[in-house]
Design a protein around this nucleic acid. Structure first.
Lengths: 152, 152
DNA sequence: TTTTTTGCAAATGGTTTGCATCCTT
DNA sequence: AAGGATGCAAACCATTTGCAAAAAA
């Protein structure tokens, strides 16, 4: 059974095409990044790396995250905060986010309509879309019920 | 001819309702913020204030911007950078943005479809929407033509 | 007179960078 | 070998904050 290309191969291919090297640190970071299945921040990733007994500097984590975004394995999501959040692109279909203003919960959803919308709007402006980001902020079901929740 | 409420009155009303004071510094900041008709950053605003011969500290600019957002006169827009951009809400209808990845140009557009989309998606998740943000990143008409443009 | 505001300068905190050393290729 | 990569600590930089002085209510 011939497996489809995995994130290691993709990353390796990308690095080679850019004349960059595949180092143990980059491998560790890649693996840890793909073992986290929610949104994460650089700091979370570093923590997780250390938890698993690995040792990589913060600088290298930042440098490698940038590469992973650049090659399309991760995507940067900014939820109105000053620091970046990341999520997997590889192996996931495109989705957008509902963000609860009360508790900070993030719900992912996919909808075809937005793809069509993108096409029609861009047509009007002769704009060539590459990607989009839609965030809907509001109150989630739980917080609407217990009116007194505060941010985690 | 009875003018509709302007931004001064709105701000004043908001301040009063919060037990806050209407100071000359806040007036200056409000006026300057509303005399800039594009997206601006805190630094731009401060610059513009000084250009017009006024003197307000950076700290006060930041503190007042937060109030203007809080009362709904301004909205914070983050274009994937580490610092905030602001735009008028008062006197403008809701719109979203096309962002050119090549030259950084920002085109505003409005579309009804997204309002309907918001309603339908939120219904599914019993999520109560308050506001949304849609950004479509891609290549603008100009940059698609001259293939060699670089960021401003 | 009481409470907010302001300005200043120092602190914050996520991210980036310079540089000497280390390690892939 | 030779040039990219790493780790460290220092630098960045937008934003925030503590505090004493100034000013609204």
């Amino acid at each position: 059974m011939n497996e489809k290309m995995n994130e290691h191969e993709l990353f390796r291919k990308f690095l080679k095409s850019e004349g960059l090297r595949f180092t143990p640190e980059r491998t560790i970071i890649l693996e840890e990044a793909f073992s986290i299945h929610e949104h994460f921040e650089a700091e979370d990733l570093l923590f997780s790396i250390r938890q698993h007994g690995h040792r990589v500097s913060k600088a290298t984590v930042y440098r490698t995250l940038a590469l992973l975004v650049q090659c399309g394995l991760l995507r940067e999501v900014i939820f109105g905060e000053r620091h970046s959040h990341y999520e997997h692109v590889f192996g996931h279909k495109h989705h957008d986010h509902l963000i609860c203003l009360k508790c900070g919960k993030i719900i992912e959803f996919s909808d075809e309509t937005i793809e069509r919308l993108q096409k029609s709007v861009c047509g009007q402006y002769r704009f060539e879309p590459v990607r989009h980001r839609l965030e809907i902020m509001g109150t989630c079901e739980d917080c609407a019920r217990h009116r007194t929740q505060s941010k985690t």
